[in-house]
């Protein structure tokens, strides 16, 4: 599964970094940073949840 993030719409809520900490982190402004674009298994599951939780819809996953 491939993960794509859009920093221009990110509002820095941090739910991605909390729910999938090996896939996402935040930069020094608090905005999303993608650590891994290709994820499998548990990480894919966590990234799917992060995409669902993202309030600004700045995360998309391509199966």
């Amino acid at each position: 599964m491939r993960v794509v993030v859009n920093t221009s719409t990110c509002v820095g809520g941090g739910q991605c970094a909390s729910s999938a900490e090996t896939v996402f982190t935040q930069d020094d402004q608090g905005l999303v940073v993608l650590l891994k674009a290709d994820v499998q298994g548990e990480e894919a599951e966590a990234a799917r949840l992060a995409a669902f939780l993202c309030p600004s819809r700045s995360i998309t996953v391509e199966e």
């Binding site: 509002v11 820095g12 970094a17 909390s18 900490e21 935040q26 020094d28 608090g30």
Partner: peptide, 17 residues
């Protein structure tokens, strides 16, 4: 709104908290 909010998103990031 985004401009204002981004002035302090850093203060409440997962790492800072």
């Amino acid at each position: 709104h985004t401009e204002h909010r981004r002035m302090f998103t850093q203060d409440f990031s997962v790492i800072r908290v």
